[in-house]
Amino acid sequence: MGHEETVYDALDHAHGGEGQWAFGTGFDDPLAGVDTTVPEGIDPADLGAYCLMLGDDALVLCQRLTQWVTNAPELEEEVALANCGLDLLGQARLLLARAGSVGVLGRSRTLATDPVPDEDALAYFRDPDEFRSSWLVAAPNGDFGQTVVRLLAASAWRLALFARLRESRDPVLAAIAAKGVPELTYHRDHAARWVLRLGDGTAESHRRAQAGVDTVWPLLADLFTATDVEARLAATGVAVDPAQLRDEVRGVLTLVLERATLTVPAWPAEQPSRGRAGEPGPELTALLADLQGLARAHPDAVW
Protein backbone atom coordinates (compact mmCIF):
# COMPACT_ATOMS: atom_id res chain seq x y z
CA MET A 1 0.00 0.00 0.00
CA GLY A 2 1.35 3.37 -0.96
CA HIS A 3 -0.82 5.23 1.54
CA GLU A 4 -2.07 4.67 5.04
CA GLU A 5 -4.33 1.72 5.69
CA THR A 6 -6.87 3.77 7.60
CA VAL A 7 -7.40 7.36 8.55
CA TYR A 8 -6.70 6.36 12.11
CA ASP A 9 -3.30 4.99 11.19
CA ALA A 10 -2.62 8.23 9.36
CA LEU A 11 -3.68 10.24 12.35
CA ASP A 12 -1.54 8.19 14.67
CA HIS A 13 1.41 8.54 12.32
CA ALA A 14 0.91 12.30 12.05
CA HIS A 15 1.18 12.68 15.80
CA GLY A 16 4.24 10.70 16.62
CA GLY A 17 2.84 7.18 16.37
CA GLU A 18 2.12 6.95 20.05
CA GLY A 19 -1.02 4.97 19.42
CA GLN A 20 -3.03 7.36 21.58
CA TRP A 21 -5.15 9.07 18.98
CA ALA A 22 -8.31 7.85 20.71
CA PHE A 23 -7.63 10.30 23.50
CA GLY A 24 -7.62 13.21 21.16
CA THR A 25 -4.87 14.71 19.14
CA GLY A 26 -4.01 17.84 17.27
CA PHE A 27 -6.17 20.03 19.46
CA ASP A 28 -5.55 23.70 19.89
CA ASP A 29 -5.81 25.70 23.08
CA PRO A 30 -8.32 28.42 22.20
CA LEU A 31 -6.71 30.77 24.71
CA ALA A 32 -3.12 30.23 23.62
CA GLY A 33 -1.31 33.54 23.49
CA VAL A 34 -4.35 35.52 24.66
CA ASP A 35 -3.72 38.37 27.08
CA THR A 36 -5.76 37.56 30.18
CA THR A 37 -5.45 40.89 32.00
CA VAL A 38 -8.74 42.70 32.40
CA PRO A 39 -8.83 45.66 29.98
CA GLU A 40 -8.55 49.10 31.49
CA GLY A 41 -11.77 50.71 32.66
CA ILE A 42 -13.62 47.41 32.97
CA ASP A 43 -15.06 46.42 36.33
CA PRO A 44 -13.87 42.84 36.96
CA ALA A 45 -17.05 42.15 38.93
CA ASP A 46 -19.16 43.03 35.89
CA LEU A 47 -16.96 41.00 33.58
CA GLY A 48 -17.17 37.98 35.88
CA ALA A 49 -20.94 38.32 36.24
CA TYR A 50 -21.28 38.40 32.47
CA CYS A 51 -19.11 35.31 32.08
CA LEU A 52 -21.34 33.56 34.59
CA MET A 53 -24.46 34.34 32.52
CA LEU A 54 -22.95 32.94 29.35
CA GLY A 55 -21.18 30.09 31.09
CA ASP A 56 -24.28 29.04 33.00
CA ASP A 57 -26.36 29.03 29.81
CA ALA A 58 -23.86 26.62 28.29
CA LEU A 59 -23.53 24.43 31.36
CA VAL A 60 -27.27 24.07 31.86
CA LEU A 61 -28.06 23.38 28.21
CA CYS A 62 -25.23 20.85 28.15
CA GLN A 63 -26.83 19.06 31.07
CA ARG A 64 -30.19 19.04 29.29
CA LEU A 65 -28.68 17.63 26.10
CA THR A 66 -26.79 14.92 27.92
CA GLN A 67 -30.05 13.81 29.50
CA TRP A 68 -30.78 12.30 26.08
CA VAL A 69 -27.85 9.92 26.38
CA THR A 70 -29.32 6.39 26.58
CA ASN A 71 -32.73 7.88 25.66
CA ALA A 72 -32.37 9.33 22.17
CA PRO A 73 -34.48 7.87 19.36
CA GLU A 74 -31.41 6.65 17.50
CA LEU A 75 -27.83 5.97 18.50
CA GLU A 76 -26.58 8.35 15.83
CA GLU A 77 -28.71 11.18 17.21
CA GLU A 78 -27.67 10.41 20.74
CA VAL A 79 -24.05 11.00 19.82
CA ALA A 80 -25.01 14.16 17.93
CA LEU A 81 -26.79 15.67 20.93
CA ALA A 82 -24.00 14.64 23.26
CA ASN A 83 -21.48 16.27 20.93
CA CYS A 84 -23.41 19.53 21.04
CA GLY A 85 -23.49 19.23 24.81
CA LEU A 86 -19.75 18.68 24.98
CA ASP A 87 -19.11 21.73 22.82
CA LEU A 88 -21.19 23.74 25.26
CA LEU A 89 -19.39 22.22 28.23
CA GLY A 90 -16.13 23.41 26.72
CA GLN A 91 -17.54 26.92 26.43
CA ALA A 92 -18.85 26.74 29.99
CA ARG A 93 -15.45 25.71 31.34
CA LEU A 94 -13.68 28.63 29.67
CA LEU A 95 -16.30 31.13 30.77
CA LEU A 96 -16.51 29.92 34.36
CA ALA A 97 -12.74 29.81 34.56
CA ARG A 98 -12.67 33.42 33.32
CA ALA A 99 -15.23 34.41 35.97
CA GLY A 100 -13.07 32.77 38.61
CA SER A 101 -9.87 34.35 37.36
CA VAL A 102 -11.35 37.84 37.75
CA GLY A 103 -12.48 37.01 41.25
CA VAL A 104 -16.18 36.27 40.81
CA LEU A 105 -16.54 33.12 42.87
CA GLY A 106 -19.01 33.98 45.62
CA ARG A 107 -19.56 31.40 48.27
CA SER A 108 -18.57 28.56 45.98
CA ARG A 109 -14.87 28.96 46.74
CA THR A 110 -15.42 28.55 50.46
CA LEU A 111 -17.64 25.50 49.95
CA ALA A 112 -15.34 23.74 47.53
CA THR A 113 -12.21 22.14 48.89
CA ASP A 114 -8.87 23.53 47.91
CA PRO A 115 -7.77 21.39 44.93
CA VAL A 116 -11.09 21.96 43.17
CA PRO A 117 -10.44 24.42 40.31
CA ASP A 118 -12.48 27.63 40.10
CA GLU A 119 -14.58 26.41 37.19
CA ASP A 120 -15.60 23.30 39.11
CA ALA A 121 -16.27 25.29 42.27
CA LEU A 122 -18.61 27.53 40.28
CA ALA A 123 -20.33 24.63 38.54
CA TYR A 124 -20.79 22.37 41.54
CA PHE A 125 -20.85 24.58 44.61
CA ARG A 126 -23.16 27.43 43.76
CA ASP A 127 -26.77 27.26 44.83
CA PRO A 128 -29.57 27.63 42.27
CA ASP A 129 -30.16 31.31 43.12
CA GLU A 130 -26.50 32.03 42.30
CA PHE A 131 -26.90 30.74 38.76
CA ARG A 132 -27.51 33.26 35.98
CA SER A 133 -28.72 31.00 33.16
CA SER A 134 -31.80 31.88 31.14
CA TRP A 135 -35.06 30.01 31.53
CA LEU A 136 -34.84 28.96 27.89
CA VAL A 137 -32.01 26.53 28.63
CA ALA A 138 -33.33 25.39 32.00
CA ALA A 139 -36.71 24.28 30.65
CA PRO A 140 -37.15 20.51 30.47
CA ASN A 141 -36.39 18.68 27.25
CA GLY A 142 -39.92 17.53 26.56
CA ASP A 143 -40.01 15.16 23.60
CA PHE A 144 -37.46 15.10 20.81
CA GLY A 145 -39.40 17.68 18.82
CA GLN A 146 -39.37 20.15 21.69
CA THR A 147 -35.68 19.42 22.30
CA VAL A 148 -34.63 20.34 18.77
CA VAL A 149 -36.85 23.45 18.75
CA ARG A 150 -35.22 24.62 21.99
CA LEU A 151 -31.77 23.79 20.63
CA LEU A 152 -32.56 25.81 17.54
CA ALA A 153 -33.71 28.81 19.57
CA ALA A 154 -30.85 28.65 22.06
CA SER A 155 -28.14 28.16 19.43
CA ALA A 156 -29.58 30.87 17.16
CA TRP A 157 -29.44 33.32 20.07
CA ARG A 158 -26.00 32.28 21.21
CA LEU A 159 -24.56 32.25 17.71
CA ALA A 160 -25.85 35.76 17.05
CA LEU A 161 -24.23 36.83 20.31
CA PHE A 162 -20.89 35.05 19.86
CA ALA A 163 -20.51 36.32 16.31
CA ARG A 164 -20.58 39.84 17.75
CA LEU A 165 -18.54 39.01 20.85
CA ARG A 166 -15.58 38.13 18.65
CA GLU A 167 -15.01 41.89 18.62
CA SER A 168 -15.20 42.21 22.41
CA ARG A 169 -12.68 44.46 24.09
CA ASP A 170 -11.94 41.62 26.49
CA PRO A 171 -9.48 39.43 24.55
CA VAL A 172 -10.49 36.32 26.50
CA LEU A 173 -14.18 36.76 25.72
CA ALA A 174 -13.29 37.43 22.09
CA ALA A 175 -11.22 34.24 21.90
CA ILE A 176 -13.93 32.15 23.56
CA ALA A 177 -16.48 33.57 21.12
CA ALA A 178 -14.23 32.86 18.13
CA LYS A 179 -13.90 29.26 19.24
CA GLY A 180 -17.64 28.97 19.81
CA VAL A 181 -18.92 30.34 16.52
CA PRO A 182 -18.23 27.24 14.37
CA GLU A 183 -19.57 25.02 17.15
CA LEU A 184 -22.79 26.99 17.47
CA THR A 185 -23.15 27.19 13.71
CA TYR A 186 -23.18 23.42 13.68
CA HIS A 187 -25.68 23.19 16.56
CA ARG A 188 -28.05 25.61 14.87
CA ASP A 189 -27.66 23.80 11.58
CA HIS A 190 -28.29 20.41 13.15
CA ALA A 191 -31.36 21.60 15.04
CA ALA A 192 -32.73 23.38 11.95
CA ARG A 193 -32.42 20.22 9.88
CA TRP A 194 -34.48 18.33 12.41
CA VAL A 195 -37.11 21.04 12.76
CA LEU A 196 -37.51 21.02 8.97
CA ARG A 197 -37.88 17.28 8.86
CA LEU A 198 -40.24 17.02 11.80
CA GLY A 199 -42.36 20.01 10.83
CA ASP A 200 -42.67 18.91 7.23
CA GLY A 201 -42.69 15.20 8.02
CA THR A 202 -45.60 13.09 9.16
CA ALA A 203 -48.79 14.36 10.77
CA GLU A 204 -47.52 13.17 14.14
CA SER A 205 -44.07 14.71 13.78
CA HIS A 206 -45.68 17.99 12.69
CA ARG A 207 -47.99 17.96 15.69
CA ARG A 208 -45.11 17.36 18.09
CA ALA A 209 -42.85 19.94 16.49
CA GLN A 210 -45.63 22.52 16.66
CA ALA A 211 -46.25 21.66 20.30
CA GLY A 212 -42.55 22.14 20.91
CA VAL A 213 -42.61 25.54 19.23
CA ASP A 214 -45.62 26.58 21.29
CA THR A 215 -43.88 25.52 24.50
CA VAL A 216 -40.51 27.08 23.72
CA TRP A 217 -41.73 30.36 22.24
CA PRO A 218 -42.78 32.11 25.48
CA LEU A 219 -39.27 31.46 26.84
CA LEU A 220 -37.87 33.84 24.22
CA ALA A 221 -39.41 36.72 26.19
CA ASP A 222 -36.48 36.79 28.63
CA LEU A 223 -33.63 36.87 26.16
CA PHE A 224 -33.56 40.36 24.74
CA THR A 225 -33.61 42.75 27.71
CA ALA A 226 -30.20 43.77 28.97
CA THR A 227 -29.39 43.44 32.65
CA ASP A 228 -27.53 46.32 34.28
CA VAL A 229 -24.30 44.36 33.94
CA GLU A 230 -24.85 43.78 30.22
CA ALA A 231 -25.78 47.42 29.67
CA ARG A 232 -22.63 48.70 31.42
CA LEU A 233 -20.36 46.23 29.59
CA ALA A 234 -22.01 46.85 26.24
CA ALA A 235 -21.38 50.57 26.66
CA THR A 236 -17.66 49.86 27.00
CA GLY A 237 -17.45 47.40 24.11
CA VAL A 238 -17.02 44.28 26.20
CA ALA A 239 -20.52 42.78 25.97
CA VAL A 240 -23.37 42.94 23.48
CA ASP A 241 -26.76 44.39 24.30
CA PRO A 242 -29.08 41.40 23.70
CA ALA A 243 -31.66 43.72 22.14
CA GLN A 244 -29.29 43.90 19.15
CA LEU A 245 -29.76 40.17 18.61
CA ARG A 246 -33.52 40.25 18.31
CA ASP A 247 -33.89 40.84 14.57
CA GLU A 248 -31.38 38.19 13.59
CA VAL A 249 -32.73 35.56 15.97
CA ARG A 250 -36.31 36.25 15.07
CA GLY A 251 -35.46 36.16 11.38
CA VAL A 252 -33.68 32.81 11.60
CA LEU A 253 -36.42 31.19 13.67
CA THR A 254 -39.18 32.53 11.47
CA LEU A 255 -37.43 31.34 8.31
CA VAL A 256 -36.91 27.83 9.62
CA LEU A 257 -40.42 27.48 11.06
CA GLU A 258 -42.07 28.74 7.89
CA ARG A 259 -40.07 26.39 5.69
CA ALA A 260 -40.94 23.61 8.10
CA THR A 261 -44.65 24.45 7.56
CA LEU A 262 -44.97 25.28 11.27
CA THR A 263 -47.04 28.15 12.61
CA VAL A 264 -44.92 30.99 13.98
CA PRO A 265 -46.50 32.15 17.24
CA ALA A 266 -46.87 35.82 18.09
CA TRP A 267 -43.68 37.33 19.50
CA PRO A 268 -43.90 37.13 23.30
CA ALA A 269 -44.09 40.27 25.42
CA GLU A 270 -40.48 40.92 26.37
CA GLN A 271 -39.51 41.25 29.99
CA PRO A 272 -36.33 41.40 32.09
CA SER A 273 -34.70 38.00 32.43
CA ARG A 274 -35.75 36.07 35.48
CA GLY A 275 -32.87 33.63 35.18
CA ARG A 276 -30.25 36.36 34.91
CA ALA A 277 -31.75 38.00 38.00
CA GLY A 278 -31.10 34.88 40.06
CA GLU A 279 -34.62 33.52 39.99
CA PRO A 280 -33.84 29.90 39.24
CA GLY A 281 -37.26 28.33 38.96
CA PRO A 282 -38.01 24.78 40.10
CA GLU A 283 -36.71 23.21 36.89
CA LEU A 284 -33.20 24.58 37.29
CA THR A 285 -33.18 23.61 40.95
CA ALA A 286 -33.98 20.00 40.08
CA LEU A 287 -31.42 19.97 37.29
CA LEU A 288 -28.69 21.27 39.58
CA ALA A 289 -29.48 18.67 42.22
CA ASP A 290 -28.68 16.11 39.55
CA LEU A 291 -25.62 17.94 38.26
CA GLN A 292 -24.10 18.76 41.63
CA GLY A 293 -25.11 15.83 43.81
CA LEU A 294 -22.04 13.69 43.30
CA ALA A 295 -19.51 16.51 43.64
CA ARG A 296 -21.13 17.75 46.83
CA ALA A 297 -21.44 14.31 48.40
CA HIS A 298 -17.84 13.43 47.52
CA PRO A 299 -15.98 16.73 47.17
CA ASP A 300 -12.59 15.06 46.99
CA ALA A 301 -13.58 12.42 44.46
CA VAL A 302 -11.39 12.06 41.39
CA TRP A 303 -11.75 9.80 38.39
Binding site: T6, Y8, A10
Partner: peptide, 10 residues
Protein backbone atom coordinates in the same frame (compact mmCIF):
# COMPACT_ATOMS: atom_id res chain seq x y z
CA UNK B 1 -7.87 12.07 6.86
CA UNK B 2 -5.80 15.17 7.14
CA UNK B 3 -2.80 13.49 5.60
CA UNK B 4 -4.55 10.70 3.79
CA UNK B 5 -4.64 10.72 0.03
CA UNK B 6 -7.93 8.90 -0.38
CA UNK B 7 -11.25 8.65 1.34
CA UNK B 8 -11.13 5.47 3.39
CA UNK B 9 -14.03 3.37 4.61
CA UNK B 10 -14.46 3.82 8.37
Amino acid sequence: GKRGLNHVHV
